[in-house]
Nucleic acid binder design. Structure first.
Lengths: 249, 249
DNA sequence: CGTGTTCTTGAGGTCGTTCAAGTTAGGTGG
DNA sequence: CCACCTAACTTGAACGACCTCAAGAACACG
């Protein structure tokens, strides 16, 4: 089994200035000069295979990572060893922001499919963001967005029932895929039932049962990891109109 | 009922340079010059009575707020109106960071006791942080810390049982009070059972029952809002040694 | 001293978990 | 190609943790 040498792939010229994810990942309105400054700081994309660690909890924090292509999960584990998936991450998203506070990564980031990632050395980005105000603001916004995201997950974990959690999850995936130009109502889940459960604070059996229930209702079709949203409105109603659903169920 | 005019209090000169919370709230190692720049930007402290809103979800975001004295809760509500307490906040902590992403406050912040707050106009802080690198880094660190905090709450909500949640909560409060020079094992809770429950994803009855259980075990004493941690180690064991506790319970 | 709010405690019900068995998909080697 | 194997998933049944509903107690406030 010879080791593959994809030197032609690694030589591929990847820069921010020609990156298709610019709108997702960078502030709008950077000029040529500023873009080339960025290109100088950002390390060309690295490839990861399914199962590879992008970083591990406890490793020294040096860089943020922007996902160019692929799919990641982040996991935290508590003192006593219990693990929890804290997020699923798609192209254009930034990983590692939790490492800034203690200069140590606070979670594991693991590729759920073959992926490509740009490395943003944090201290150099910090310097650059002093020169480019819109970049500084963009970073604050990204971190703030992460806070908002985490808090809405807290709301989900604290208040919602299993069906509502799953509905919210499916709609969230759907919406993020749509943002990236993929089909909103027909997609392949990249993660296992167990990982979904861990993320949603449920057991894998409950995830499975609930997906089956949705299918029986005719709201979705489930074929292993292939999901189709047949009646996304029904899922939305589950979340926003819980009081209703609760009454007549 | 005449309106009190505490002009002497309001006239009190409150500046970062003479603030006792400097270590909690500001980066270390600022020089005189930099401190006076800060003082120029930060609005003198404002007072809030128990129940007052510091800001409301949906209001335009303009400033971050640093708690000088007092105690706040932050609440989010979902589309359908369900509320959840997303955090309790003590002196030296910064509120409003979730508003940066969308320029709109994403939660309510409500005083749980009479409090005093400094206002940090965000855009001016942004400018200042460009001139003072350690300030910029400090803000990144604070936001990162908030992300870490939120994720550990996600872990709590996703994985832990009622007893473990409550134990973690009590130890967290205790530790933060200790940081501020208060007694770690003898304190008054500022929030109701319902608010604790909302924060921990439990009903108020469960909070009450679990506190009683802890008291029966001799781990704590509960007298309404007055809590004493008699055996904090027992609570710690509950969290870190759950596998153990689980086996012999 | 009465009123309303917060808290405690009990009893019964529900949702999600646990445990267990069975199914399917994908990979490996004969 | 098929038999085999493992991992991931599905489904059922019983249990348990937490919730719901309800009543009573303790306290705060006027």
């Amino acid at each position: 089994m010879p080791e593959q040498n994809n030197s032609n792939l690694h030589a591929m010229k990847v820069t921010c200035s020609n990156c298709t994810l610019r709108e997702l990942c960078l502030p709008i309105g950077l000029n040529r000069e500023e873009l080339s400054q960025l290109d100088a700081v950002i390390r060309q994309s690295r490839r990861f295979r399914r199962g590879d660690y992008l970083f591990r909890s406890g490793e020294p924090f040096k860089s943020l990572f922007a996902i160019r292509t692929g799919f990641f999960k982040t996991c935290m584990s508590s003192q006593d060893g219990r693990e929890q998936v804290t997020g699923f991450h798609m192209s254009g998203e930034l990983l590692g922001m939790d490492g800034i506070s203690a200069n140590v990564h606070g979670c594991d980031a693991i590729a759920l499919e073959d992926s490509e990632v740009c490395e943003l050395p944090f201290s150099r980005m910090q310097c650059l963001s002093r020169e480019i105000p819109s970049l500084q603001h963009h970073f604050y916004r990204l971190m703030s967005r992460e806070i908002v995201r985490d808090q809405s997950i807290m709301l989900l974990l604290g208040n919602m029932k299993a069906e509502e959690r799953l509905a919210a999850f499916l709609l969230n995936v759907s919406q993020r895929l749509a943002t990236r130009g993929f089909a909103a109502n027909d997609f392949i889940l990249r993660m296992s039932r167990e990982e979904i459960g861990s993320f949603l604070g449920l057991k894998l059996e409950t995830v499975s049962r609930t997906l089956s229930k949705f299918q029986q209702q005719g709201w979705i079709t489930v074929d292993h990891k292939h999901i189709q949203l047949v009646q996304p409105e029904a899922l939305k109603a589950l979340i926003s109109g819980c009081t209703h659903a609760h009454q007549h169920a």
